[in-house]
Amino acid sequence: MKRITVTESNDSVWNGPQDPRKPANWSFARKWTIVVTTSLATFIVSLGSSIFSAAIPFVQAEFGVSSHVALLGISLYVLGFAFGPMVWGPASELYGKTRPLWIGYFFFCLLHIPCALATQISVVLVFRFLIGLAGSSMLAILGGMYVDFLLHPTERGISTAVFSAATFSGPSLGPIVGNIVATRWGWRFTIWATMVGAAVFGMLAFLSTPETSEVVIARRKARKVYKDTGNESILRQLPEETPNTSIFCQVYLAKPIRMICQEPILIFMTIYMSVVYGIIYTTFTMYPIAFTSYRGWPSVQASLPFLGILVGVLLACCMLAYHNIYYIPLLMRQTEVHVPERRLVPMILGSASFGSPGPPTHLYHGYLRRALVF
């Protein structure tokens, strides 16, 4: 079957550039409902990565494994975050945003069931990896989805702040929620609780989020008109082949690999983000040792220091939103154009503050874990 696609200026599909069916013309309420609900769903995905840290001592006791093996439940989940976007991102370019987004999220919810019912540590670890792999569809697709309907640079910057707050607040709250749940109902309920939260917030996001890719929407509308009327005047034939698995694997899956090999800025940013994520997730094992093993705090109280990370995340996101609300529009009024590099200011400040006091702070914390035992 030949591929049928729409011309951009076809009035039989769109009623002009101000057509309210176009994502860019949706109402303010609809746009930001999508941003908020999908960010909440992403919050659960990221929370699931660290909530397992509370289950580690229980997993060790039940399955008779070392702490190093139990910690793989966190490591493999995050490893799924690394590999999943290499599939979900290219899929969203070819098939639209919502289809791969909700396929991934559906399996993210579903795979919690065998993980919670597992009777062997190997099953737990395999499904933790698969859960992270499936849940990463939210991390990979939502940034591009927001660009589809948020056109102004300020709107895009604020949506980035909201999404970032959800993404990084989840790992900070995970150990706290996990310890409360695990001490009262057992470690398996940390998995059940994540699944329930994912189902609730995922349903809200699913009901609020239609397809946002204008090209995909137009293609679907044109095919419907063609099917109903047989009118080929609104269509034109393209030489490309119909999108299929072969094209997806040969063309789209290769894009991330080509980009990371050919774009130096992407290489450096990837390495930097890997270091940041590595340090954040190291605290999930470092804090329990420092506050539970050395200071003898109960597990719930020992997880409260993660609130410091949460406060830092929220302050950084507020700064990012402020920068986009006031600084970016001011420069746009002066130059009448938006320069993407202007967004680097908060990142530079954050990198400098992370790089200068960061290592000494961790050294100080490592020293105090022995010096101030109370």
Rank of each mutant, 00 (worst) to 15 (best):
V78S: 04
I74F: 03
W192P: 13
L310W: 00
S299I: 08
L125S: 04
L101K: 09
G296W: 01
I267S: 12
E214C: 04
V373C: 07
T190Q: 03
F291W: 02
G96V: 03
W187G: 06
V65I: 15
L238M: 07
P171D: 04
W297M: 14
K227R: 13
H338V: 13
L207Q: 09
K227Q: 14
V123Y: 06
S208F: 09
R295H: 03
R333F: 05
T5K: 00
C261H: 06
T167I: 15
I51T: 01
V345Y: 01
G355Y: 02
Q120N: 11
A41E: 07
L235T: 11
P171Y: 05
Y367K: 14
I56P: 06
I158R: 08
M203Q: 09
T190P: 14
R342E: 10
H338S: 15
K31H: 10
Q250N: 15
W26Y: 08
H68N: 13
V373F: 05
M273F: 15
N25D: 10
S46R: 08
E240I: 09
S246D: 06
Y367I: 13
T37G: 06
G48H: 02
G312M: 00
T33C: 15
S50N: 08
I271A: 12
Q237D: 12
H365D: 07
T190F: 05
T42Q: 13
I113V: 12
F28L: 15
L344N: 07
A290M: 08
P175I: 02
M273L: 15
V225G: 05
V200M: 10
P329S: 03
F63L: 05
I4M: 00
R21W: 04
S353Q: 05
P360I: 06
R184P: 11
I280T: 10
I191A: 15
V126R: 00
A70W: 01
Y294F: 07
F43Y: 07
G358Q: 05
N231G: 02
V196C: 11
N231R: 00
N25M: 09
S75M: 03
G197C: 04
T37W: 03
P210Q: 11
S164V: 11
I325K: 07
Y294I: 04
A70S: 12
T209P: 02
T37R: 04
R99H: 04
R343D: 10
W88E: 07
T242S: 15
K224V: 06
G296D: 04
Q262Y: 00
T119E: 09
T7Y: 13
L94I: 11
G16Q: 03
F354I: 10
E241A: 14
R258A: 12
I328Q: 01
T183A: 13
M259H: 05
F268W: 14
I271M: 10
A254Y: 15
R223N: 10
N324W: 05
P243A: 01
S299A: 11
L207E: 08
Y294V: 05
V126W: 01
Q262A: 12
L207R: 09
K224N: 10
D19M: 12
E62N: 10
Q237F: 02
